[in-house]
């Protein structure tokens, strides 16, 4: 009995150890030289350590382009180690698609490489990065130890970019935040859409402008057709070989926008809006209830303002 117990304890602590330090990052091959690390479709928790995001890398003739670096220093280090198991080539460029913490807090592991982002993204990371990191500490715990802010040191612009010997097209867009970068790899026709596209995982909206975001999705849809995109890597959720995640994201945002406006027009207050049930189709979508509630907090005040009339 005592032996059984100690085995159990050993096992438990071994699991706890595994849960607390190893993200078990396995690169998913998408095309020749193109890989992604697919995160869980969940909220930030102490068990997933914030690994709820998709990151990726592209191996060129001269070096590696890294797209987003995950939620912590540890994630960045493990990502870099996983890349090194695929290729010995140096890191040519790290790209942060936007200023949300699960996309740039692994930057420290790439401090010796150039780290690029749109100008607004750089500003957002500099001003809000520390608060984001603090919040992730609170939500995930020990996984974050040693994580410090490492802001991008290069400003990226829309248009073609040669990096690591690979031909990329950078798309400077907005809607999920004020500055969202999508990265297109010409050789493989792979589009890394960042958080502009969610796939079967409820979109997050802390800095969203739904009108801009929906316009951007339309532009991305057109880009997919024009450039015959063969693989689409969303910021969260499984990768796709077609444009369905774009339509899926647009449908969610359209429903959310309409639902909040209707709610405000009907005279509901925030608590009543929070209590509204999700449509049948979204009830089983990962974290849909939690993201809806967060979105009400972010977006309902504007919908409400819209529904009121001036008296003075």
């Amino acid at each position: 009995m005592r032996r059984l117990l100690s085995t159990l304890i050993a096992c438990l602590s071994c699991q706890a150890w595994a849960a607390g330090s190893d993200y078990q990052l396995t690169p998913l091959p998408i095309a020749e030289g193109v890989y992604s690390f697919i995160g869980e479709q969940a909220d930030f928790t102490p068990s997933n350590g914030g690994n709820i995001v998709n990151t990726g890398f592209i191996v060129g003739t001269e070096g590696v382009v890294v797209i987003d670096t995950g939620p912590s220093r540890r994630y960045g280090e493990q990502m870099r180690a996983a890349i090194a198991r695929i290729t010995p080539k140096p890191i040519a460029l790290v790209i942060n698609t936007h200023h949300h913490p699960d996309h740039f807090l692994g930057n420290q592991a790439f401090a010796d490489a150039p780290i690029g982002a749109l100008a607004e993204t750089g500003k957002g990371i500099a001003s809000e990065g520390d608060a984001f990191a603090e919040n992730l500490f609170r939500l995930t715990g020990d996984w974050m130890s040693g994580t410090e802010l490492k802001a991008p040191d290069q400003t990226l612009q829309a248009g073609p970019l040669k990096a690591g010997g690979r031909s990329l097209i950078l798309l400077a867009l907005k809607g999920h935040t004020d500055a969202d970068l999508a990265v297109f790899d010409e050789d493989s026709a792979t589009l890394f859409a960042g958080d502009l596209v969610f796939n079967l995982r409820a979109p997050t909206t802390p800095h969203a402008n739904l009108t801009h975001w929906k316009d951007t999705l339309q532009a991305l849809d057109a880009f997919m057709k024009d450039h015959r995109v063969r693989a689409l890597v969303p910021g969260h959720g499984p990768i796709a070989r077609d444009a369905r995640p774009i339509a899926w994201t647009r449908d969610w945002l359209t429903w959310l926008d309409r639902s909040l406006r209707e709610s405000a027009a009907e005279g509901l207050d925030m608590n009543e809006t929070l209590a509204r049930p999700l449509p049948e189709a979204y009830r089983d979508i990962p974290v849909s209830g939690a993201e809806y509630r967060r979105s009400v907090g972010h977006l309902f005040p504007a919908a409400e303002t819209h529904s009121l009339q001036h008296n003075n």
Binding site: T305, L308, Q309
Partner: peptide, 14 residues
């Protein structure tokens, strides 16, 4: 400052 916007509902559930 002190700009006021309002709305009243006179029919329906609200």
């Amino acid at each position: 400052l002190n700009e006021v916007t309002t709305r009243t509902w006179n029919e329906g559930p609200m």
